Simulated scan of single mutants.
Amino acid sequence: MEYNKMEALLEKYFEGETSIAEENELKDYFSSPNVAEHLEQYRPLFGYFAKAKDDTFTQKVALHSKKGKIAWFSIAASIVVMLGIGTYTYFNTNTVKENRELGTYDDPEEALAATQKALAMLSNHVNVGIEGVQYLQVYETTKNKAFVE
């Protein structure tokens, strides 16, 4: 009778329908010395659970703190920012000094020559713009002749 009950419990166990009390009953049965011969094959399964319950983990696990990594990353980031600011300041101060020196002449004749050169360049660019406007005027008069007539 007990063998039939154990077989039914095993069937329920493998279907995943047993309760905790029924699983404990199976463990107790298979840990006892009077197990039926045809159920002997299941003894290691339930014996493993009993044995695994007593096992303990004895190795030490090294815990690595993330604070150390974050500290190094923040230090590296601040160094990069400081290098960037220093590089920008170094190269920017040279251009500021050069810009302050532009447009100042001690010799009036040299200043006159530089002014005439700048005005000639400006005149050339204005003349190019006037030529473009003259083409527009020719286009406008041609268009008016074509559409009025």
Results as ranks from 00 to 15, higher is better:
112 L>T: 09
113 A>F: 04
82 M>E: 08
94 N>Q: 10
110 E>N: 04
61 V>H: 02
70 I>T: 14
86 G>W: 03
111 A>Y: 00
109 E>I: 08
71 A>N: 06
97 K>P: 00
58 T>S: 15
119 L>P: 03
109 E>N: 14
50 A>H: 08
120 A>D: 08
72 W>N: 11
109 E>Y: 12
104 T>G: 07
40 E>M: 05
86 G>C: 11
55 D>M: 10
62 A>H: 09
102 L>S: 00
78 S>I: 01
88 Y>F: 15
79 I>G: 10
90 Y>I: 06
88 Y>L: 13
67 K>P: 00
42 Y>A: 03
79 I>A: 14
57 F>M: 15
64 H>E: 11
81 V>H: 04
74 S>N: 11
35 V>N: 11
113 A>G: 00
106 D>S: 14
36 A>F: 12
53 K>N: 10
60 K>A: 12
57 F>W: 14
66 K>C: 04
58 T>H: 08
68 G>P: 01
63 L>N: 13
64 H>Y: 07
95 T>R: 03
37 E>I: 07
38 H>K: 11
117 K>Y: 10
69 K>N: 05
114 A>R: 01
58 T>L: 14
38 H>A: 11
66 K>I: 06
96 V>F: 09
89 T>L: 15
114 A>L: 02
121 M>D: 15
71 A>H: 03
76 A>D: 07
42 Y>P: 00
64 H>A: 12
58 T>A: 13
40 E>W: 04
92 N>I: 01
72 W>H: 10
51 K>E: 10
68 G>A: 09
97 K>H: 02
117 K>C: 08
38 H>V: 11
99 N>T: 06
53 K>A: 09
87 T>S: 11
54 D>H: 12
76 A>W: 05
43 R>E: 01
47 G>H: 15
99 N>D: 06
111 A>T: 00
112 L>H: 05
95 T>D: 10
35 V>Q: 12
82 M>N: 08
43 R>M: 02
111 A>C: 01
88 Y>P: 02
73 F>H: 13
95 T>W: 05
106 D>L: 10
120 A>L: 08
114 A>I: 01
118 A>P: 07
54 D>I: 13
85 I>F: 15
84 G>S: 11
105 Y>K: 02
113 A>T: 04
91 F>A: 04
67 K>W: 06
75 I>V: 05
102 L>D: 00
85 I>H: 11
102 L>W: 04
51 K>I: 09
121 M>H: 11
58 T>Y: 12
119 L>K: 12
105 Y>N: 02
114 A>T: 02
117 K>L: 13
31 S>P: 03
113 A>H: 01
32 S>F: 02
118 A>E: 12
63 L>F: 13
102 L>K: 09
73 F>W: 08
118 A>D: 13
59 Q>E: 09
110 E>A: 14
114 A>Q: 05
34 N>V: 02
87 T>Q: 11
109 E>L: 12
50 A>C: 08
71 A>R: 09
75 I>W: 00
51 K>T: 15
93 T>W: 08
119 L>N: 06
120 A>P: 01
72 W>F: 10
46 F>I: 08
67 K>R: 13
74 S>K: 03
53 K>W: 04
36 A>I: 08
81 V>G: 05
57 F>P: 13
88 Y>W: 15
37 E>T: 06
73 F>V: 07
101 E>N: 13
96 V>Y: 11
37 E>P: 05
49 F>M: 15
45 L>V: 07
97 K>N: 06
51 K>N: 12
